[in-house]
Computed example of a mutant assay.
Amino acid sequence: MEMMNLKPAFARKLNQQGLSPLHMAVKQGHKGMAPRFLGIDKDLVRVKGKNGKTLLHFISEAGNHDGMLDRILEICPQCIQDVNALHIAVENNRLDVL
């Protein structure tokens, strides 16, 4: 968080696996970090990582753990325009996302 405060562009950088800090926080189950990142810049949810995947892609594939999808859509409702989450959720049998 301190790095983001000092250099906000850091939050948009991808690591060698093609993941942003926000992608990594969600992937690693750090549920409190995502809202903190998005509190600084709500458009971080729209950062495209490996293969053009946004955070919404990740959640649509992995499931709506701890209501993360709800929080993300409250913070940045425009992110739904970046992905066809419905198709991804159906392909991955994620009824919780639907």
Rank of each mutant, 00 (worst) to 15 (best):
residue 1 M to E: 14
residue 2 E to V: 13
residue 5 N to I: 07
residue 5 N to G: 10
residue 12 R to G: 00
residue 12 R to E: 15
residue 12 R to A: 07
residue 13 K to P: 06
residue 13 K to A: 12
residue 14 L to E: 01
residue 16 Q to N: 14
residue 16 Q to H: 10
residue 18 G to W: 05
residue 23 H to E: 03
residue 23 H to Q: 05
residue 25 A to P: 03
residue 26 V to E: 03
residue 26 V to I: 14
residue 27 K to W: 08
residue 33 M to R: 04
residue 36 R to T: 07
residue 39 G to K: 11
residue 39 G to I: 06
residue 40 I to H: 12
residue 42 K to G: 07
residue 43 D to K: 05
residue 45 V to Q: 02
residue 46 R to T: 09
residue 49 G to Q: 00
residue 49 G to D: 01
residue 53 K to G: 05
residue 54 T to L: 02
residue 57 H to V: 08
residue 60 S to G: 09
residue 62 A to P: 00
residue 64 N to H: 09
residue 64 N to Y: 01
residue 70 D to L: 10
residue 70 D to S: 15
residue 71 R to P: 00
residue 71 R to H: 10
residue 73 L to I: 12
residue 76 C to Y: 05
residue 77 P to K: 03
residue 79 C to G: 01
residue 80 I to H: 03
residue 81 Q to D: 07
residue 82 D to S: 07
residue 87 H to A: 05
residue 87 H to G: 02
residue 88 I to W: 11
residue 89 A to P: 01
residue 90 V to Y: 09
residue 90 V to C: 13
residue 90 V to E: 00
residue 91 E to K: 08
residue 91 E to T: 08
residue 91 E to P: 00
residue 91 E to V: 02
residue 91 E to N: 12
residue 91 E to R: 12
residue 93 N to T: 13
residue 94 R to E: 05
residue 95 L to M: 09
residue 97 V to K: 06
